[in-house]
Design a protein around this nucleic acid. Structure first.
Lengths: 196, 196
DNA sequence: GTCTATACGACGATAGAC
DNA sequence: GTCTATCGTCGTATAGAC
């Protein structure tokens, strides 16, 4: 929709490039992916890529920002729809598991890439906005008495650490059953770790 | 000691190379480190590096194997010196924290590198021997009744996930106090998550 | 075993036509 | 905006002297 003026690919050449790039970066890594690879996979010429992005790092940065914004908006929705730390944090884990299963590339790029190696000016993922929102949920839970009073980082890592490790285990192929089938067991343990 | 025959660097050119390489790989990543960098940093010529190792990947592989073996032997010691799952798992976290503080490069290379990107034939760290031993400790704890009966991966990730996330947070510079000062708080939460 | 010099290929990025 | 062709650089790995 929106403003479709030309006949083919309304202007989403960018989206094509980004989609192919995400798949390549997660499949073989940033440094094992050449701009030629991106051109071939996205069925676009090298010239087009350099027209839409400053350089290879620019493509990665666009991908990174998309991901951060997407997560931030999803977390804002969770914040709006749930009121207790218990419900919000469960919803966060549920969201992470769903993304892992339905769009594994996104989760892999988010949790499993060494961004510092190819985006030297970005802050580490864990100090990005989404992770800050997650810690905010935990802080609210401590203020309201749902979660034991303790260091915020300790509470956050203990509450989300199990689920996050489970996600990386899933991406490493270590799980026998689908990731989502573990969610209730994980949650019982994680919540028990910090609840009052 | 051992067999010191020549006057300078008894034969540990290899160790020199590996040490410099570890520092470079953790500092700027595998792909941002050239063999020239390694030569300069280890004060050895390129020719020497290729004499001692097949190629750049071979240096990384040697580093990786050293690390796995070192960890396996440390974990074997823990197994010998402690008898309960409680004591063994606490000792594991204590060990990980100590290594993180005293030899951060080793921990960073172990937990924070995307080995699959430069060692495509190695299994992911989490399915390596050290992590298997850690899971074995947890399984023993379930058999003896110290730990609740549940899926082994769930119990393992919940028990160690918080501590491991705390380590990566520490490496990302997110902690205000030294990592080891958090150990007791972490342990209380982590153990409560899975204990009977 | 250690060194220097070099070959060779790949990749990022640009130029310039359409 | 998209394309092809090309340039320059850098990095891995080897050759061969000492």
């Amino acid at each position: 929709m929106s403003h479709v003026t030309s006949k083919k690919t309304p202007g989403d050449t960018q989206a094509q490039i980004l989609s192919a790039t995400l798949s390549l970066f997660t499949g073989q890594g940033y440094f094992n992916t050449s701009v030629h690879d991106i051109a071939r996979e996205s069925e676009v010429s090298i010239g087009s890529i350099y027209h839409h992005f400053k350089d290879k790092e620019g493509v990665a940065r666009a991908l990174y920002n998309d991901m951060i914004n997407r997560m931030s908006s999803e977390l804002a929705t969770i914040k709006k729809n749930h009121n207790t730390a218990h419900d919000r944090c469960y919803a966060v884990i549920e969201l992470l598991f769903i993304i892992t299963e339905q769009e594994p590339d996104i989760m892999e790029f988010m949790l499993y890439s060494k961004h510092r190696e190819f985006l030297p000016n970005e802050r580490p993922v864990c100090s990005s906005q989404p992770f800050e929102i997650m810690r905010e949920f935990v802080q609210d839970g401590m203020n309201s008495g749902e979660i034991q009073d303790m260091d915020l980082m300790v509470a956050s890592t203990c509450l989300f650490g199990g689920a996050i490790r489970m996600i990386t285990s899933s991406m490493d192929g270590l799980l026998k059953k689908p990731l989502s089938s573990y969610i209730d067991d994980i949650w019982i343990c994680s919540w028990r770790a910090v609840a009052t």
